[in-house]
Amino acid sequence: MARTPFPVEVLTPEGKVFDDEVEMLSTRTGEGSLGVLANHAPLLAILEPTELRLHREGGEVETFAQAEGYLQVVENSALVLVEEAHRPDELDRSDLESRLEEARNSLEGAEEGSEERRGYERDVKRYEAFLEVEGSD
C-alpha cells in the first residue's frame, strides 16, 4: 500500500546531502525512535546520533549515519539539520574505533559534572552510533 510522499531536505554545514520526496523518514530523538509520515503535525525536535532512514517510493531506502541535530516538520515538509551525515560505505571502521577510544580516554580524565565531560560523552555517543550504522551493513 503506497503512502503519500512528502519532501525532505537534509542539510549539514558542509552542504546538502539529500533533497527529495520520501514516504517515511525515520530517525531518533531523546525520547526514542521517531518515524515521520506525510501530513505530520508541526514539529521541532532535537535529534540524537543514529541511522537516518529515508524510505523512497517503491521501497528503496537511503541511509545515513547522522550526528546530533534538529528536525523541523512544517507544512508537510521535513528539514533535517545535522552536524554530519555520512553514507554507510563512507565510514571507516578503524578510524571510528580509534576516535571512540580517544573520546573514552578523555572522558575518564574529565572532571565529574563539567561541561568538558558532557562534551566527551556526546563524542562517545556519536562514534558508538556511527559504528553501529557501519556494522549493520
Partner: peptide, 10 residues
C-alpha cells in the same frame, strides 16, 4: 507545534 524536548531545552 510539538516540541521535543521543550523549547527552552532546544
Amino acid at each position: 507545534w510539538i516540541y521535543e524536548p521543550e523549547p527552552g531545552e532546544i
